[in-house]
Each structure stands twice: as structure tokens, then as C-alpha cells.
Design a protein around this nucleic acid. Structure first.
Lengths: 230, 230
DNA sequence: CTCGTTAATATTGAATTCATAATTAATTTT
DNA sequence: AAAATTAATTATGAATTCAATATTAACGAG
């Protein structure tokens, strides 16, 4: 059932530029040189410029007419707005998942949940985050709403470089795990209202986590360092 | 405070193609000829193809590699998924609006509301719809969340050609007006939870209205008539 | 030396051209 | 005549070219 993903050159290029942005190789605010990227990828300007237009539509970059493209600056406000939206979408995904999910899918998520708990007790943050991601992705998939998945994926992409921060206080972590206990219980009861509420309020959907990481890009406009201002 | 909208050729072309889709001049499923559109708009293939890529990203058309573009078919499922999502976003917009809205903005919406009621009593559906739209737009604007506005606007665009149907039963209309009464009351009390709930459940965000209109495009694949299947 | 002006350069926007894949038309074979 | 194969045409994908705009460098006046 995995979708056949059609590989056009422009889509390939867009994805690679997306990676550059995610890994900080293109700094927010800094002008993106078409020539440089063309040389880096070994393509002409035509597919590159198509990719830039797509990335602008996806909200990752901004296009200033006749003045080139630049990576969108993730201001405090913009990240907060995006998180608020993602929380609402996660809530919806929970509600819909309760309506559509099979027993088998629930037990798969239960397994992921237990595995995540292990990593929590072992204080393995990286492994915890990965399992956490898989759980949320599974709920999203169980929602059976492709438009929702597409939109969530886009928003996730936008804030990826400030998400899943390395820092996290123990208190936050404890709360997140409690949320997850409530989630899996709500899911097993198929209580859509409850799961929706939990996910909307879930800590990971809240701004505090990213704020802590000190990765907000509210710095002076015009240069591209990603200076803290949180 | 109105945004300066930058006019690139590709954006202009994308908007015009969007209009063609909205008004049914390009049928779902039917192949879109680059050559024809180039001639119609008097532009070369470069900006036109950029526009097509943007429209595909926006979810209005699909691009089949080496096989051209076609207008996305609005199946029952796709419209339902989109409506579910829009309902969640409207709910969020209501919650956020309650947090940010000024007394002045509320009174403006109250005025719109009263005006809408008049049109309701006069059975002027067209005028009613316009006021209705303005109210929802005002709440969305009051949310102060630009990302939310952008996403909602995109979803709205996708289903525009099946929305605001001409048909509407009196019972549905009565219920919608009741919802609006509750909305304005919740807004004036700044009860974010309540307004969120009302908007999520609001009739206009539900599928029934579009379903009635008989504009769902679940017809046989390959041709583009927009046949009913509801 | 600084500010403002003009010329040179570089970059972007869009049309054209070339290459490749898909579709249609023509031809052949059974 | 129908199906299959091949040739011709058309459409798409991507590189190149040309034009317009912005940026930088050079120059000159105060």
C-alpha cells in the first residue's frame, strides 16, 4: 500500500534543498544563489527554479521578486503558530484514528509504546524520540485522512530544524510519558474525544520544548545566523 | 496592514488556472494541455510549467511524469477528509480568536451577524452566504495565526468548486443560523473552548451540505464529467 | 574622506531550443 | 478485417539563450 513516489528532477532538487535547510547548510535570511545550487546538484536553472517555487509554496523559503530566494526565518511567533496548528491536527488525527483503527494496529502501537517506555527508563533520549515519532505517525496513519497527513507532514517539515531538541528537562519528559500513557489508554477504549483532547494538550505539541532549545531565529533581519531570542 | 502581494508571472498564471478550475473550465481528470494554456495566457512554457508545479503542491492538480497535468478529482472521500480538516482548523481559529480579539472586532462581527440574520429572514441565500463567509473570515483573521490562515485558505481553495452549494434545505439553514447565534455569544463571552466546539461541529463544516449539491466527482476515472455518486 | 552618481557586473525572469518519452497514425502480418 | 508492429507526430522534460532588473564597482563632486 506504499505510494509509488514519482521522481521528477524538480522534486528531487526540492527535497535536497529541503535537506540543506534542515541541516542548517542554508541559513535563514541568507540569499540562496541559483548558480551555486545548480553547480552543486549538476542541473540547469529550469528544474532548480521550479524547485524553489515549490519550496516557497511549501513555506520553507521566501521568494523576493528579482531578488532571489531565502530560507524562511523561524521566528518565535511563527513556530508558536505552527505548533498550535500541529496540535489541532494531532487532536483531529486522534479523533479519527479512534473511529478507524483496528485491534491489530492498536496492539502495534502498544508495542511501540512499551518499547518507548523502556528507552525512557534507560534515559535514552534519541531512541525515545524515534519511538515517540513512530507512535504519532501510526496514529496519524490510522486517521485514514490523507489530506490531514499531507498537511501535517508539511508543517512538520517547516519546523523540523528546531524540533526534537536535544535538551529536555526531566520534568517535561515525565509529563510527556504520562501523556502517552493516557493516549494509549484512550486509544484502546477508542475514546475519540479524550484522545483528541490529550493530543491537543500534549506537551510535545507545545512551544516550550522548542523554546528551551534556544534555536529560535528572531535575530536581526538581513543576516542568517539563527540567533537566540527566547 | 494588507500584505503587499508580489506579482510574478508564474503566480499570475497559477491564479488564472485556479480560476479555470474553480469555474469548471478545466474538468477533473481531463488532461491539461500546456500548449493550449500558453496560447490562452500568452506566456511561454517556462512560467506555465512553474505554475503547474505550484498548483500541484497546492493540491489542485496532479502531475503525471511525462504524461501531463490534470485537475484533481474531488471524490467523496477527499471532500470529506478536507471538510474534517477545515472543521478542526475553524475550531482552532475560534479558540485563538477568543484569546486575541478586541471589543471593536467583536462588534464588527456582531454587525455582520445581524446583517446575515436579515438576509436569512429574507431568504436571500446568496447574500447570506457572503455575510457568512465574512464572519468566518473575520474570526480566522482574529486568530492572529498566519500559518493557520494560509492552510485554511489552501483547503478552501481545493473544495471551492463544490462548496457554497446553491441548494440548501430550510432545516439545514435553520440549524446553521442557530450555530451562528451560539458562535457570536461564545465570542462575546470569549469562551474559547465553547467557540472551538461550536465551530468544529458547525454544519457548514460538515459534508452533508456539499453532498446534497450533487457535485461530487467519484465518476469513472479517465473522463472528466463530475458525475454524482453520493 | 564621504556621499551621491554613473558604469560594469552579476543575477534573476522568461522565451527559445534541444532531447526524450508518449501518443497517434500508418503499415504490415496473420 | 483485426491485431500487432513500426513510423510519424506531438507533448513533455530540461538546457540554453536572451532580456530586464538588481547589485557591485568605479568615478567624481562636495
Amino acid at each position: 500500500m506504499t505510494k509509488i513516489l514519482q521522481r521528477n528532477l524538480y522534486r528531487e532538487v526540492a527535497d535536497r534543498i529541503g535537506d540543506l535547510i534542515e541541516h542548517g547548510e542554508l541559513s535563514p535570511g541568507e540569499r540562496i544563489s541559483e548558480k551555486q545550487l545548480c553547480e552543486k546538484f549538476g542541473v540547469s536553472r529550469t528544474p532548480l527554479r521550479e524547485a524553489l517555487k515549490v519550496l516557497a509554496t511549501e513555506g520553507l523559503i521566501e521568494l523576493l521578486p528579482n531578488r532571489g530566494a531565502r530560507v524562511v526565518r523561524l521566528t518565535f511567533k511563527k513556530v508558536k503558530d505552527t505548533y498550535d496548528l500541529m496540535a489541532a491536527l494531532e487532536g483531529l488525527s486522534g479523533e479519527l484514528a479512534c473511529q478507524h483503527i483496528t485491534d491489530k494496529e492498536i496492539s502495534t502501537i502498544r508495542t511501540l509504546h512499551n518499547s518507548m517506555l523502556e528507552h525512557y527508563h534507560q534515559h535514552d533520549l534519541k531512541a525515545y524520540f524515534e519511538l515517540n515519532r513512530q507512535i504519532h505517525e501510526s496514529i496519524l496513519a490510522a486517521s485514514q485522512n490523507e489530506v490531514l497527513q499531507e498537511m501535517y507532514s508539511n508543517l512538520s517539515q517547516r519546523v523540523k530544524r528546531v524540533r526534537y531538541s536535544k535538551k529536555m528537562t526531566q520534568a517535561f519528559w515525565d509529563q510527556a510519558v504520562k501523556d502517552h500513557e493516557n493516549m494509549i489508554n484512550a486509544l484502546e477504549k477508542r475514546d475519540s474525544q479524550l484522545l483528541g483532547q490529550i493530543l491537543r494538550d500534549h506537551l510535545c505539541n507545545k512551544l516550550e520544548v522548542a523554546t528551551l532549545a534556544g534555536v529560535i531565529e528572531d535575530g536581526a533581519p538581513g543576516e542568517g545566523h539563527g540567533i537566540v531570542n527566547a
